[in-house]
Design a binder for these strands. Structure first.
Lengths: 344, 344
DNA sequence: CTGAAAGCGCTTACAG
DNA sequence: CTGAAAGCGCTTACAG
């Protein structure tokens, strides 16, 4: 029943079989110089024949490099985060780095992950919307061994770390301007949770852009034209309901994400409102479903955010003294069928 | 500029500081027996004060265990896969296992990942819809060190491995029966790619269930009532278009996923058809959006699939001689607003 | 170009 | 209950 030899192939086996020392095998297999071409060929052939796979733990211990990158996100099952992760993974796939993932949905999880498990475990770290409070960032820095672990942020900032940023104020400006140009004046906002004072920077910046643009255009800001949609379809539907069930409903809604916009669309439909006849809606992201539903939106190349973060991290890993950089991701207005001039 | 000591804290430092041997530190910190209570307390205190973190590579090399689990999925950015991963991650989060992810979108990626990088890298592996062809499965088995690496499959089978299964024939039966009971006879199918002979088992089983149920009910099977939707919203929209743009369109559609059903819904809307007046639609999954759109669907607890896989894997890791198991995930019909008796 | 040997930071019998 | 020492499987100066 039990196989004859359970032990797996080690570098010793390859060395013995090829008739050289383990040092030579090590050099030959990693394409280091100072190996005779014929020796290298023989070693490579032997390793393949034996299906030798170096033990990563041993290499890591010997070199001090983990050849591992971690990515931490608040949620694994959100449209946005899975797109970003996918983009990062695609870049990393051929580099030989392993990709570790961590979900850090709350403060406790964040602290637990950022203070312990990562140290000595990864060479680099991509943090997506993982807001590290001011008072924790120093601890975090030292936990990461000063500059030992390279960090790249997406959607927020960390002192001294590279980051991928979107001009979220500009995103909101684009959306609100588009609606205003169509003639709308009663423009509402569907955003993140409204009770999240120091929460994510993204909703804050988008709200800022909304407020600034409305003011710049002399349009009325009304507290009843603002509702939290929790970045979910259901949340958007509820927020849309609140906005529409008033005496003086808005004629246009800017939703901070397409998913919330889908909810607003549904809320309008439930109330028998025509879109864009009675209500214009614009979202953010350019979700696959947005195209199918004809949703006007501010397009982001979300997977590209992850790819940019991964590329940036690789650069830092290759050149440890590279200064922190800011990578700007682009956005653009995509006009489809959910926006039109107001009925009157 | 450069910090005084770059070296990180090792077990030696803790031992020296606590005035004991590294062996004792090792035992004390891992709660092994044969450590005096006071000694243990002192060691623990010292380790915490020094913020000692054991080097995982060293532990792994010494023990032969990697305390790492990998999860491989065809795509990272699909609704289904990200839900499954999320469920698995939640179970694994508190176990101390690291979670590695691999996207294996095509044959080449699958072979590359399953034959090399995993060996000596993980203790266990969760494979989601990663169809390993017959001729590769033997190779795969030996690459995984016979029984060294524990494997759990979701959505397909591998000889000798535990798996999480859904009765997909039953899923289709549930959907088709529901439509038939409402009085529909012209029931169409929107499924996976139709040109994928040995592709995923899930679409095949659901198609089988559709065919079987139609036959059992003496309903007509027509080749023009079957369209491939590639499990995407856009694909569903196109498939819906094909189905509806005929002389004798169906009165009901069973889409193999909610996302495809959304596309069908949109195709109907584009053609001015009323749902459920002119067309009934049922999907599979119970996607968040399904609730908002009122889509009738066959509910699956998708995150639970991942959680079941993770729990199963942990069991196998704890008890290596546990025989392979089959874990059945439940499904149920959720009737909402997209299904009704046919107009006539 | 090649090999012997030390070292990476842990764990684990083994002896005391 | 504790410690000295071997060993895990690599890499890397160093000597030849």
């Amino acid at each position: 029943m039990a196989g004859p030899d359970r032990r797996s192939i080690t570098i010793e086996d390859v060395a013995a079989e090829a008739g050289v020392s383990v040092a030579t095998v090590s050099r030959a297999l990693r394409d280091l110089p100072n190996v005779a071409p014929q020796t290298r060929a023989r070693v490579v052939e032997t390793a393949e024949r034996l299906r030798y796979q170096p033990d990563p733990s041993a290499s890591r211990l010997a070199t001090g490099r983990t050849t591992t990158i971690a990515i931490a996100v608040p949620l694994l099952d959100s449209w946005y985060f899975s797109k970003v992760m996918s983009g990062a993974e695609a870049v990393l796939a051929d580099t030989g780095y392993d990709l570790l993932i961590f979900a850090v949905e709350n403060d406790e999880a964040r602290r637990r992950v950022l203070s312990g498990p990562l140290v000595k475990r990864v060479d680099g770290l991509i943090l997506i919307d993982v807001h590290v409070p001011q008072e924790e960032s120093a601890d975090f820095g030292s936990a990461m061994g000063g500059d030992e672990v390279k960090v790249v942020c997406v959607g927020f900032s960390l002192p001294g770390a590279s980051k991928v940023v979107v001009d979220d104020v500009g995103v909101a400006r684009l959306a609100v301007s588009h609606l205003a140009e169509l003639g709308h004046t009663r423009i509402a906002l569907v955003g993140g949770p409204t009770d999240d004072p120091l929460g994510s920077e993204v909703p804050r910046a988008r709200r800022q852009g909304y407020v600034d643009t409305m003011q710049a255009l002399d349009l009325p800001l009304r507290s009843d034209y603002e509702a939290g949609g929790h970045f979910s379809v259901t949340g958007g539907e509820e927020a849309g309901g609140c906005l529409l069930d008033t005496d003086d409903p808005p004629t246009a809604v800017f939703a901070m994400s397409d998913e919330m916009a889908f909810g607003v669309l549904e809320a309008a439909r439930e109330r028998g409102l025509d879109v864009p006849g009675d209500l214009s809606v614009v979202g953010v992201d350019d979700h696959e479903v947005a195209r199918v539903l004809g949703l006007t939106t501010i397009r982001q190349r979300v997977a590209e955010h992850g790819a940019m973060a991964a590329r940036s991290l690789l650069e830092h890993l290759e050149d440890p003294k590279l200064p922190a950089r800011i990578h700007r991701a682009e956005t653009s207005l995509v006009v489809r069928r959910t926006t039109a001039p107001p009925a009157r």
